[in-house]
Computed example of a mutant assay.
Amino acid sequence: MQDDLMPGQLLARGVCRHLLHHGFVTVEEMVPAPGLRLDVMGLGPKGELWIVECKSSRVDFTSDRKWQNYLEWGDRFFWAVDADFPVELLPEGTGLILADAYDAEIVRMGPEAPLAGARRKVMVQKFARHAALRLQGFRDPGVTASGISP
């Protein structure tokens, strides 16, 4: 299966493994609102929500025009890149995670911007539904992440 994964997906796997060591559960490719897709969202042991955008190259980063729209959907925002990525391109005031396919390291914490209670409730519900549908899809190939069978 690893051969089928794209470089950003391999980074996401390492990030998810690392966040699990910090007590976070994660989902990949979650849609918080139409037109947005988060690479990784982590739900922490105290209900905190972290967003991680995985960038596998300079081109991948410079072509991302939506990342600032992600900030309102989590308590912290991070970039995840590999050791060869030119980190000076990344905006100040954002978190930084160095990752590979097997693990990661939080180099710089993203600033905390706590979600309002109503937004947090919606996001935790979306997280739970996304995770449940993904799990159901493993048992029933007719189920997709949106819940709609083809």
Rank of each mutant, 00 (worst) to 15 (best):
M1C: 08
M1Q: 05
D3C: 06
D3A: 12
D3P: 04
M6W: 10
M6Y: 07
P7C: 04
L10T: 00
L10F: 03
L11W: 00
L11C: 01
A12W: 00
A12M: 03
R13C: 00
V15I: 04
C16Q: 01
H18P: 00
L19A: 01
L19D: 00
H22L: 13
G23E: 05
F24Y: 15
T26G: 01
T26N: 07
V27D: 02
V27L: 04
M30C: 08
V31R: 09
P34Y: 11
L36Q: 01
V40S: 00
M41K: 05
G42Y: 03
G44N: 06
G44P: 03
P45K: 12
K46T: 15
E48P: 12
E48S: 15
W50V: 08
C54D: 01
K55C: 02
S57W: 10
S57Y: 08
R58L: 12
V59P: 02
D60Y: 02
D60T: 02
F61L: 12
S63Q: 14
S63M: 11
R65T: 13
K66Y: 09
W67M: 08
Q68T: 15
Q68R: 15
Q68N: 14
N69K: 15
Y70D: 10
L71R: 02
E72K: 15
E72P: 05
G74M: 07
G74R: 00
D75K: 14
F78H: 07
W79T: 04
V81S: 07
A83V: 11
A83E: 14
A83R: 13
D84Y: 11
D84I: 08
F85M: 04
P86S: 08
V87D: 05
E88G: 06
P91F: 09
E92Y: 07
T94I: 05
I97G: 01
A99M: 02
Y102S: 12
D103V: 04
I106H: 04
I106P: 03
I106L: 09
V107E: 11
M109D: 13
M109G: 06
G110R: 09
G110N: 10
A113G: 08
L115D: 00
A116D: 15
A116R: 15
G117V: 14
G117D: 15
A118C: 12
R119F: 07
R119E: 13
K121M: 12
V122R: 15
V124L: 12
V124W: 10
F127R: 09
A128E: 12
A128W: 10
R129S: 13
H130M: 07
H130D: 06
A131L: 14
A131Q: 13
R134A: 10
G137I: 06
G137Y: 03
F138I: 08
D140F: 14
V143P: 03
T144F: 10
T144E: 10
T144Q: 11
A145Y: 05
S146Y: 06
G147L: 11
I148E: 13
P150M: 06
